[in-house]
Design a protein around this nucleic acid. Structure first.
Length: 898
RNA sequence: GGACGAUUAGCUCAGUUGGUAGAGCAUUCGCUUGACGUGCGAAGGGUCAGCGGUUCGAGUCCGUUAUCGUCCACCA
């Protein structure tokens, strides 16, 4: 025995050590090799605020499987890692930490705040990277990037300026989603709608000209101070007499017009809508169409505006520097300074007191909330930067329609196209400090704006030095959108960019197709003229055992690191890869990980068995001429496995690939081949022993290779102890299907023996015969040669004391077992109830005849014969013939019983 | 309101060119079998949600209904 393994696999003794050898060997590092085909994946950069969760574990397991597979296949592979600065999440964390010291952002100032943020990044930003390593991720860490590093920042500025110059980025007062809690605008994609209980408040506005009361409903009465019109539909017969009239806005006693607009739907409510252009997206549009003033009544921190707010706005307007759609601001008087919630209460009370509140109708409705803090979003007109989406979306839609980028599974294409087709201009400015600062400068002298890739200290319009850079930063997704090429050096024409771009596969969850995938695609097309990747592999969510989404608030998250600690990274990876089909959610449970751990242990012990049987100066490769039937059988099976696993991986069917490996290793290799090997290994025949060992080593080490992408640690550990050439399994050659290992006839013969053995075991178990009670076995068959070879197998695997093979036997009072190829007699007469035996055989006969009838029906069907493929017909004929043989044998057995 | 997904053994899920169904766990029976009890051998258990259609043949394709779920949508 040359080497010894422990009786149980202990991942803790293995994983960190192995990972270090991979790092030391530089196997993850991509060296550009022009002679090879490239395979590139860029990691979806995890947030630096993040801790590894199951979603990351799944996402990175899938990526690592693909990368390891292609690497072994000989591709020049690059898996490029990195992290995302996560502007809003990180900033919130830091603000929170400062709060404990009694500090605010403003106390510190921008520069000091950013210092803190970078310190925080240094301290915690690497945490998730270390956690990815625990999983076994084979990323090229030498190329690790950060969305806020110098290169990415350069790319961001380049893109911003180019888009600005093409008028695809603009600044203006538009309706945005404002989070008063995070104190920033967020994009449409970042709004989550939640159903909440609310009311329709039916209000009465008096018509100035006629004195009648006009009824209208609103879900947000607190916005009424900002109403600058009410709208009716021009076709609405009920209100035709009011065209051109006005209403008196309650509480303010302000006269506002009644306008006709398509937005007013005659079929809903009373057909009258109040219009608040500053605080409702629809109303903003109505205001635009009807030239209504925009009156802002909310501050950016979610309170009602007062005298000071009005003064600032008035000053701006007076200065002449206000831009298009600059809102006026109302001094809300007694309501000033109230939160919107307080204001709702106060305003409703006053409306009621004034007789303006007709009715309160309870109603559930969808309320927009901030994806981060889940507070209610206030729609607000605000001056922000936007990306003009329509011209950018068009090529991105076409590229996917043409199949330049494919989604797997295919159905997500529709999801993507819907998103792209419906998308509105993208609000990209954020009132945050942690992020890419907008490269625009405003001149205090002439008021003009300059957009530039580099710092501007002199105004190009007037020569003034009195310039201020825009204080806002860009949406985090703006930099992530450039990730596939900014990380490779773009806008420089770097060697990496030329070699590895466009990338191949993007692996991500369906939840960020809109946020991220779509933006990468249109960005890549715009700046690089190519799609960023050819395939998007979409996976689902990992849910808990009850099927609930894992979340912090529920506290039902399962920590992948704890699972790794308890069961090993391989078991975790195997669990995530197995039984999981693309795009579908999966449930995660300890039982599943246990099953994976058991599988690892099974493999480990199979390897132990092989090693126990090798001695110092072996291994010699097997000699093909000496191969036994079971050798040819396993080699042929392995050969098929290699073909199928490769095909499955090519098609991104990782779950199927892993299932095939599991079945092969457990059911074929361990349960049959290793058991059969014991016969020769325990014999004294040196040549047979050598052949057996040679085949064992061959099959074991090549199977390990196929399994390696899924379970990298254990396969490496075992492979290193087996005879091997090369430094590491992860850079060894991927097994290929080969004609030399096709042994169809031997497989067929082997199946005959196996079927018979299973039938004997089955009978013995039914009759409760202890395995220790050996019995003679008589095999009556026309395949005498085959069963002669199989004699020893029966002894080993079917508790046979001795085996006789002949054309037929005439044995009284024995159990008979019928397969398609043989009738087997067990002389266990004393255990047999012959009546029961007869019944059993008759039952079997009936089943066989039923099956045969079904097949014959098919074969007598002219339609089937004419249209079914030949292979299917041949198969049916063969099955039919087998059944006929079996039926004949059953009949004769029954006869013998009398 | 739209789109998509799920519905297969008690539970969790596979099933990819349409040929009457598989795994793991659970259950039952048996096993000190010299790799492994994180194991070995065996068994039971399914009109593949309902209905209709295409087809020689449908879990698989089409239509429809039901239940559950997800995403998207400006409905006062």
């Amino acid at each position: 025995m040359s080497k010894e393994l422990e009786k149980q696999y202990n991942p803790k003794n293995v994983e960190d050590r192995i990972y270090k050898t991979w790092l030391d060997g530089k196997y993850f590092h991509a060296e550009r090799d022009e002679s090879k085909q490239t395979y590139t994946i860029v990691i979806p950069p995890p947030n630096i605020t993040g801790q590894l969760h199951m979603g990351h574990a799944l996402d990175n397991t899938l990526q690592d499987i693909l990368i390891r597979f292609r690497r072994m296949q000989g591709f020049d592979t690059l898996w490029l890692p990195g992290t995302d600065h996560a502007s809003i999440a990180t900033e919130a964390k830091i603000v929170e930490a400062m709060k404990k010291e009694g500090l605010t952002k403003e106390d510190l100032g921008r520069e000091k705040f950013l210092e803190r943020a970078w310190d925080w990044k240094k301290q915690y930003g690497g945490r998730i990277v270390e956690q990815l390593k625990k999983l076994g991720s084979s990323c090229d860490w030498d190329r690790e990037r950060f969305t806020l590093d110098e290169g990415c920042n350069k790319a961001v500025n380049e893109v911003f300026v180019r888009l600005y110059e093409k008028d695809l980025i603009y600044r203006g007062n538009r309706m945005v989603n404002w989070c008063p809690f995070c104190n920033t605008s967020i994009s449409d994609a970042e709004v989550e709608y939640e159903e909440k209980d609310g009311n329709f408040w039916h209000l009465l506005y008096t018509v100035k000209e006629t004195g009648e009361k006009l009824e209208l409903a609103t879900t947000r009465p607190e916005t009424m101070l900002g109403d600058t019109a009410v709208a009716i539909n021009a076709e609405d017969e009920r209100y035709k007499h009011l065209h051109g009239c006005h209403v008196i806005l309650p509480l303010l006693n302000k006269e506002i017009p009644i306008v006709c607009d398509e937005h007013a739907d005659m079929t809903k409510g009373t057909g009258v809508v109040k219009i608040t252009p500053a605080h409702d997206p629809n109303d903003f549009e109505v205001g635009q169409r009807n030239n209504l003033p925009i009156v802002r009544t909310f501050t950016y921190d979610g309170r009602l505006t007062g005298a000071e707010d009005k003064r600032i706005a008035d000053e701006l307007i007076a200065s002449g520097r206000a831009t298009e759609n600059e809102p006026e601001v109302l001094d809300c008087g007694k309501y000033a300074g109230m939160t919107t919630k307080e204001a709702r209460k106060a305003i409703l009370a006053d409306l009621e007191a004034g007789g303006y509140l007709k009715e309160v109708e309870p109603r559930k409705h969808e309320v927009g909330t901030c994806y981060r803090c889940h507070n209610t979003i206030e729609p607000m007109v605000s001056k922000q930067w936007f990306v003009r989406m329509v011209p950018l979306a068009k090529p991105a839609i076409e590229a996917v329609e043409k199949g330049e980028t494919k989604f797997i599974p295919e159905r997500f294409t529709k999801n993507y196209l819907n998103w792209m087709n419906g998308t509105r201009d993208w609000c990209i400015s954020r009132q945050l400090w942690w992020g890419h600062r907008i490269p625009a400068w405003y001149c205090e002298e002439c008021g003009k704006m300059t957009v530039s890739k580099t710092n501007v200290d002199t105004c190009p319009h007037c020569g003034s030095k009195n310039l201020n850079q825009d204080p806002d930063t860009l949406d985090t997704w703006f930099s992530s959108a450039l990730w596939p090429f900014s990380t490779l050096g773009w806008p420089e024409e770097t060697a990496d960019l030329k070699h590895y771009y466009p990338t191949n596969t993007l692996v991500t969850g369906y939840d960020i197709i809109g946020f991220w995938v779509s933006r990468m695609i249109f960005s890549a097309l715009e700046y690089t003229g190519q799609v960023p990747f050819d395939t998007v592999l979409i996976h689902g969510l990992v849910r808990d055992a009850q099927g609930r989404k894992m979340s912090k608030s529920l506290g039902n998250g399962i920590d992948p690191l704890e699972i790794i600690d308890q069961y090993g990274a391989d078991a975790l990876r195997f669990t995530l890869a197995t039984g999981n089909s693309p795009g579908n959610d999966m449930r995660f449970s300890d039982e599943k990980v246990e099953a994976s751990r058991n599988f690892a242990n099974k493999l480990w012990n199979a390897a132990r068995f092989v090693l126990m049987n090798l001695d110092e100066n072996e291994p010699a490769p097997y000699v093909p001429e000496n191969l036994a039937i079971e050798d040819k059988w396993i080699l042929s099976q392995f050969n098929t496995l290699a073909k199928e696993v490769t095909a499955s991986l090519d098609k991104f069917e990782l779950g199927l690939a892993v299932q095939k490996l599991y079945d092969f290793i457990w059911d074929v290799l361990c349960d049959w081949y290793i058991e059969l090997c014991k016969i020769r290994l325990n014999s004294e025949d040196a040549e047979k022993k050598a052949t057996c060992k040679g085949v064992l080593v061959y099959v074991m080490s090549n199977t390990l290779k196929l399994l390696h992408p899924f379970m990298p640690f254990i396969t490496e550990e075992i492979w290193q102890t087996l005879p091997h050439a090369g430094e590491s399994i992860m850079i060894s050659e991927w097994p290929k299907f080969t004609d030399e290992l096709v042994f169809t006839d031997d497989e067929t013969e082997m199946e005959r023996i196996m079927t018979a053995i299973k039938a004997v075991r089955n009978r013995r178990a039914e009759m409760n015969v202890a395995p220790s009670k050996k019995a003679e076995v008589y095999v009556a068959t026309s395949y005498k040669d085959t069963f002669e070879i199989g004699k020893e197998f029966f002894k080993r695997l079917a508790s046979a004391s001795d085996v006789q093979v002949a054309d037929s036997f005439d044995i009284e009072g024995s159990v008979s077992i019928v397969t398609a190829d043989a009738t087997i007699y067990l002389p266990l007469a004393q255990l047999v109830d012959f009546e029961a035996e007869k019944k059993r055989l008759n039952k079997e006969l009936a089943e066989a005849e039923k099956k045969l009838g079904f097949i014959e029906n098919k074969l007598n069907n002219p339609g089937f014969l004419a249209k079914a493929p030949e292979a299917v017909i041949a198969q049916q004929k063969e099955d039919g013939a087998k059944l006929q043989e079996k039926i004949a044998l059953l009949k004769s057995s029954i006869e013998k019983l009398g």
